[in-house]
Design a protein around this nucleic acid. Structure first.
Lengths: 199, 199
DNA sequence: AGTACGCTAGGACAGTTGTCCTAGGCCAGA
DNA sequence: TCTGGCCTAGGACAACTGTCCTAGCGTACT
């Protein structure tokens, strides 16, 4: 049982990475099996279908995201600092994003195109960030437009990730991060000012 | 020859749409053939490989994009008005973007994950918009930071498209369009002001 | 009227996919 | 030492993929 759970976790970890790097559909059982040097038929004991692996991967990503957000809550005492950590993800994970794009955005887009039932679960990853960002903006004093501001930050990260992936331009990413951090400073200065700060 | 060119164009048009709606890899010869009610073996006469179809689709998209940009040049006399038309794409093609995302962004991302040789050609679609936007900003008087501003507008469109696709939120799209149009107005007011306008 | 050729339909082909079965290896408990 | 059950390897299976071949249709030109 101990060993079984370990290989199961290995399968999920390998699938997670391969789905990210090469896409869900393009990643076959054979690819995962080859990466782990495990028999192809062995999968059936741990996962009945490929979709089951995808579900497990998404669940793991949800859990990992929750852990990360909790850590941010613990590390940064103020909401502005927390939002800043999110903004800087495109720098922190810069290499991966340049090579493979945003793991959330690309997976959601792919599953939507496939008409895959797990699409909803993948969108929940977005919702996790959205709700967390909204909370931070509420704490910042933006009760009324907290969700709109959260969506704006989310859109920033998606836009930057997509173009960073397409053009592999480090300077661009830094420029946009600086821009949004300045915008965030204006936001933090007060709700009244923020209405015009971003225009 | 006349008829041959017509069916060839039909194949490209159907493939273009299907690649957009369901992705390149997920779209098979059988799918395209079924959509056109054409024999599967018939493809070989027009395209040697599936990649050839993809190349033709990208070429067609490049040509269509060039036509659209030329039309914008003709329609709007001032650069600010032209940039505005680009910004409003996310409204003009709002329904498609909500359902399938940005045709450029999603194709580029997919081909990158597949390690497909046509990835460079797909990126050229981005470059087309980038260069055109840059020209407009130069005409607006932003010689030094024209490319940075072009990339900013491009990032906006990708971010909005991705989230519009994920959440299907019309209000969000309108909000972000208004926000960037206000930013554009500040940009058009003069290069000196634009440095702080977006902060 | 005859012929050459662009165009099409249908199917063959090998390779790969996800799914599933079965036989055997391993290790804990009796 | 024997036994039961978790775990694994290897392969079978039908369905599907992209690729390719061949026979026949239709239509323009001689």
């Amino acid at each position: 049982m101990e060993k079984g759970a370990a290989t199961r976790a290995q399968i999920v970890a390998a699938a997670d990475r391969l789905f990210y790097e090469h896409g869900f559909e393009h990643t076959s059982f054979a690819t995962i099996a080859g990466a782990l040097q495990i028999s192809r038929g062995n999968f059936y004991h741990h996962f009945k279908t490929k979709d089951d692996i995808l579900s497990a991967v998404i669940e793991e990503r949800l859990a990992a995201t929750r852990r990360m957000l909790q850590q941010w809550d613990a590390e940064a005492p103020e909401p502005a600092g927390r939002i800043r950590q999110f903004i800087r993800i495109v720098l922190t994970n810069g290499q991966d994003i340049q090579n493979y794009g945003c793991p959330v955005g690309t997976l959601t887009a792919e599953l939507a195109k496939l008409g895959h039932p797990c699409h909803r679960d993948a969108t929940a990853l977005f919702t996790l960030f959205r709700a967390w960002l909204r909370e931070q903006f509420v704490e910042l004093g933006h009760q009324t437009d907290a969700d709109a501001l959260a969506m704006h930050v989310l859109a920033f990260s998606q836009g930057v990730a997509t173009l960073s992936h397409a053009f592999r331009d480090d300077e661009f990413v830094h420029r946009e991060v600086n821009r949004l951090e300045a915008w965030l400073d204006a936001c933090a200065a007060g709700p009244a000012f923020s209405q015009t700060a971003d225009q």
